[in-house]
């Protein structure tokens, strides 16, 4: 029990150190890109948040499958944590992309496939969270939310391949299996991008773990509230039993 806060503290420290290194590399170490100028530095934020947003939806899908298979609440908690953290990263991906596009493309937004499917991903996250917020708690909500989480993952490969499938203004992949040798980034720009992706992945893991912990607390509160609501009934039942009554305690509780 004592080791848990220490691990969190180390994790937080690691995240802060990596972020500090990333910022130093972005603003001091890496040279200014010759064509786009300083606005290109925004891509060291945009690409990592896009990467983590997609990792998040894959994690939601993975946790959803695991929940449907095992019915263990820990997977449901993981799916919620990944979805809520994912919606933050997806929102930031859209905003940073739009602010970059304005000076480079001349517009905030184009209706091309890569951008539109990314917007759909954001709405899938929102729909998932709204569903969870408005549907009554219980097994049915967890099961149906898992199905929605799985559906969201369908969008991920479409986003990834979007720039290749429909060649438009959005640049093709510059790292990973889809990048070709001509367009791939290397040198200081490539190194900075990789460090930024690692830093944001660690940040995502930290934020998602904090959200997971919060979800666990929420479940604990729900259980305790249920126990509190049952107490008078149990007390009555207990007193009735002591008076040798045959009446049974009422079933059910707050949920």
């Amino acid at each position: 029990m004592v080791a848990v806060p220490k691990i969190r503290l180390i994790w937080l420290g690691l995240t802060a150190a990596l972020m500090a290194l990333t910022l130093w590399m972005i603003f001091i170490w890496v040279p200014t890109e010759v064509n786009q100028g300083n606005i290109q530095r925004s891509l060291y934020f945009h690409v990592p948040v896009a990467w983590t947003a997609m990792v998040a939806i894959v994690l939601v899908a993975f946790a959803s499958v695991a929940y449907l298979k095992t019915r263990s609440e820990k997977w449901d908690r993981l799916a919620v944590a990944a979805a809520e953290t994912g919606v933050i990263f997806a929102g930031l991906m859209l905003i940073t992309g739009m602010v970059w596009a304005k000076p480079v493309w001349g517009v905030w937004w184009t209706g091309e496939a890569k951008l539109t499917t990314t917007l759909i991903l954001f709405f899938i996250y929102v729909a998932y969270l709204m569903f969870r917020a408005y549907f009554p708690p219980g097994e049915q909500r967890r099961r149906l939310a898992a199905v929605i989480g799985l559906m969201g993952a369908i969008d991920t490969p479409i986003i990834y391949y979007g720039a290749q499938l429909w060649e438009r203004a959005h640049p093709s992949a510059v790292v990973g299996p889809l990048s070709d040798s001509d367009s791939s980034v290397d040198g200081p720009i490539g190194i900075t991008l990789i460090v930024a992706v690692v830093a944001f992945s660690v940040l995502f893991a930290y934020v998602a773990s904090e959200r997971y912990r919060l979800r666990k607390q929420e479940d604990e509160v729900m259980e305790l509230r249920r126990a509190v609501s049952l107490r008078p009934a149990l007390a009555i039942s207990s007193s009735l039993e002591t008076t040798e009554s045959t009446a049974s305690a009422p079933a059910g509780g707050a949920y």
Binding site: T32, N35, Q36, G37, N38, I39, R41, S42, F45, H46, I95, T96, V99, W100, K102, P103, V104
Partner: peptide, 11 residues
């Protein structure tokens, strides 16, 4: 394109 510090700051 070099004069975009405002956009960078916003991001």
């Amino acid at each position: 394109l070099e004069q975009n510090l405002g956009f960078l700051f916003a991001i």
